[in-house]
Each structure stands twice: as structure tokens, then as C-alpha cells.
């Protein structure tokens, strides 16, 4: 498709300008050119034609491996040492599952599912919990008052409350005390055409990132052809993260 080619060429150009403009000199190491991830030109808003999503193949996910969790932590600056483990932030975590009847065991990463109908957005009193046009669910910390109602409402336990003042933030990933936070789908990377850190880090390639709004994307094609699961499908939240092999 010529459109696609243009898009790609456009990505290269704008990616380079943006990188230069933002002061990132090295374009090579972090940035991978993948057909599904395209940088938006500067000044352009996220489009509702796109819906970012993820397909996680749990059959490839090893129980002891937490490469995605570590990658998330270093990318997003989640490095604080909170004494009480129950007060630490978990943007992504590995869950080990065992079927109560059959005893079958497997493992999977769990994070914000970026629902199309997010309960956290519904319950937020100020509108700080929000869904971007391209389906990424975020917390607007500028107006988050730290009431934690969204944490009560989220069926995936995907959100964390920052219990301590922070100083080690990644400049591109602001986060701070008294606000609620969760996986951003690495929105700062996605916006410049990179993959989320967890997707890039998975040694087994178990995580596929892409545009659910584009029927020709790899993720859409696989979801159309293979059996996939929405976690807590009974709640009809239409999560952007799908699983295989649960």
C-alpha cells in the first residue's frame, strides 16, 4: 500500500526531527521500525481511528521470567524503595495461575487493560482518569486528588497509589506522591513510534503491540483468526489487552 509507504517515510522524517528537537541524538538503539508503530507528526493529536492494544501469548510466557516487569520499572523510573511491599507501585506484574480443577499452571503479565469502557474513568470525580482518543487510559495527575476511587473500581488491580515523595522520575514519565498511577502503555514511546518497553523486552516475543483499529495490522489479523481471551469478559469492558492460552 502506498499509503503505508508514505506513512513510513513520514515516520522516519518526523521521528528524526522529533528526536533531534527533543534532544535525543541517538535514534538507533531504542527505536525499532515496526509497521504498526508510527510516530505522529509534531502538533498532531492522537486519533480515534487508532486503538492501541496488545496481544499476550501466555503459552510463551515463562513462570520465573520478569523481563517485562524490569523493563517497565527502568523505563518508567519505578525505582523507589518503599518499605511496605503492599505500598509499592506495580504498573505491570507477573501472575502465576493454577487451574483449581486440572492443576494446569501458567504465568502471565498483568497490567492496565486499557478498556474501551474503563470503570476507573467512570468513577473518577474530577475527570483525572481519562481515555485518550487512541484508547490509552491515563491518569491526568494535574487534577488527580488522590481519592483512590479508581483503585476501588478497577477489576484488574492495575492501579497503584504513590505513597511517598519521589525524586527519581524519568523526565518523560512524570509521577508523584499522592496521585494514582498505572501502565501508560509507554505512551511517550508509542507517540514517537517506539514499542512499549515490556513488549520490546520480552525474550520470547510473547507480547504483540499494535493498532486494533486497523483491520490489516498484525494484532487485528491474529485476533480475527485465533482464539483470544478478554480478562473478566463478563464485565463487558472491552479491554485493549487480549490474552491467548489462559
Amino acid at each position: 500500500m502506498s499509503d503505508n509507504d508514505n506513512g513510513r517515510r513520514g515516520f522516519l522524517a518526523t521521528g528524526a526531527t522529533m528526536a533531534a528537537g527533543l534532544g535525543f541524538v541517538a535514534i538507533a538503539p531504542g527505536i525499532r521500525l515496526i509497521e504498526i508503530a508510527q510516530a505522529r507528526p509534531a502538533g498532531e493529536a492522537a486519533s480515534s481511528a487508532v486503538r492501541w492494544g496488545m496481544l499476550i501469548d501466555t503459552t510463551k510466557c515463562a513462570s520465573g521470567c520478569d523481563a517485562c516487569v524490569s523493563a517497565c520499572a527502568s523505563e518508567n523510573g519505578i525505582v523507589e524503595q518503599v518499605e511496605d511491599p503492599a505500598q509499592r507501585s506495580h504498573w505491570i506484574r507477573k501472575i502465576d495461575l493454577k487451574d483449581k480443577q486440572s492443576g494446569r499452571e501458567h504465568s502471565l503479565p498483568m497490567m492496565c487493560q486499557h478498556c474501551a469502557e474503563p470503570p476507573c474513568v467512570d468513577v473518577c470525580p474530577t475527570g483525572a482518569s481519562m481515555k485518550r482518543a487512541d484508547g490509552i487510559v491515563l491518569v491526568d495527575r494535574h487534577i488527580c486528588i488522590g481519592c483512590r476511587y479508581c483503585m476501588m473500581a478497577c477489576p484488574y488491580k492495575a492501579r497503584s497509589f504513590v505513597h511517598e515523595p519521589l525524586t527519581e522520575q524519568n523526565p518523560e514519565v512524570p509521577r508523584g506522591v499522592g496521585c494514582v498511577e498505572a501502565c501508560t502503555l509507554c505512551v511517550h514511546r508509542v507517540d514517537r513510534g517506539q514499542l512499549p518497553a515490556c513488549v520490546e523486552a520480552c525474550p520470547e516475543g510473547a507480547l504483540l503491540f499494535g493498532d486494533l483499529g486497523d483491520p490489516n495490522s498484525e494484532i487485528s489479523r491474529r485476533i480475527a483468526q485465533e482464539a483470544t481471551t478478554q480478562v473478566r469478559a463478563d464485565l463487558q469492558l472491552n479491554p485493549g489487552v487480549r490474552y491467548q492460552g489462559i
Partner: peptide
């Protein structure tokens, strides 16, 4: 608000 809520980058 533009950057966070609408995703406008590079301003």
C-alpha cells in the same frame, strides 16, 4: 492539557 489529554507532542 494538550499533551496529556490529546497527545499533541513536539510543541
Amino acid at each position: 492539557d494538550l499533551t496529556l489529554r490529546e497527545g499533541i507532542r513536539g510543541s
